[in-house]
Amino acid sequence: MELRKPPPVRRLTGYEVPSSPPSNGNGLHAAAGFRLPARLGAPSMVAIDRMQVEELSVSYGHKPAVQSVSLPIRQGEVLALIGPSGCGKTTLLRSLNRLTELTRGASLRGRITLDDVDVAHMDATALRRRVTMVFQQPNPFPMSVFDNVAYVLREQASRRPRRAAVQGAVHEALARAGLLDEMAGSLDHPALRLSGGQQQRLCIARALAANPQVLLLDEPCSALDPVSTRLIEELIAKLREDVAVVIVTHNLQQAYRVADYVAFMYLGELVEYGSAHKMFGSPREQRTKEYIGGAFG
């Protein structure tokens, strides 16, 4: 799939690199009750517009889930969607690759573009190869580690190209997910025998195998232990250079650790969108302040 035109490249502003994270001595005023953890990785200095959400509303039957949300999604940045349960963040995420279509009764208004093409006009399977997704529960397919990744590289249900032909790409995807060294000797083992953390990183490797432009993560660490969580967060920080990352999370500390931009949603509305720096430092909205401060959620 070719890009229609080169996407605009922009320098980020207002992003001074924090010099000494432990003291948070970077001029941030943390909202009451929220201790700022150390951020992972230096922020990327370029950002490429990938997706644009314009006035998106989604409802299930008569129940609105997302109400006229607009925000940009850029490569080079990690966007975190935060908010209490049922606020529509997962629905928003699932609209980006048109997974909402699979839910009966779901209806969608507004526009989402990927590289300036309306996703509604794209073939759903083609879109989903460019905007891949990782789920809350690790869900490797019941096949070997190798085949889990190779499945993505092959045409639909086909078993071709053969193993030798996809080996390079499979190894590359596993390497990008930081799993290649660990899995070197066990590529033929059933993926469901791996530990939860390894399974989730395999799911990330699988999602990266198609070389997507956007990677959607739906609470990828909520079923994992702290060590696996750490590994995945480091991975996300590394990945944002090559792929736009959108992560839904319930964990504010995690949002702070990995996100460059944060969107706070509440009752289906986008309450506030801004840089992580601003959202965690001095949010504009009272509700954001309360949520980040732990008043509700």
Partner: peptide, 27 residues
């Protein structure tokens, strides 16, 4: 088979038929 396993396959650009053949029936 949990719904998210099906969705994981759809979310990688696989059709329903491919998902059924390669993921659901083996499972």
């Amino acid at each position: 088979i949990p719904a998210h396993v099906r969705e994981a396959s759809y979310a990688l650009g696989k059709t329903k038929i491919a998902t059924t053949r390669r993921v659901l029936l083996p499972a």
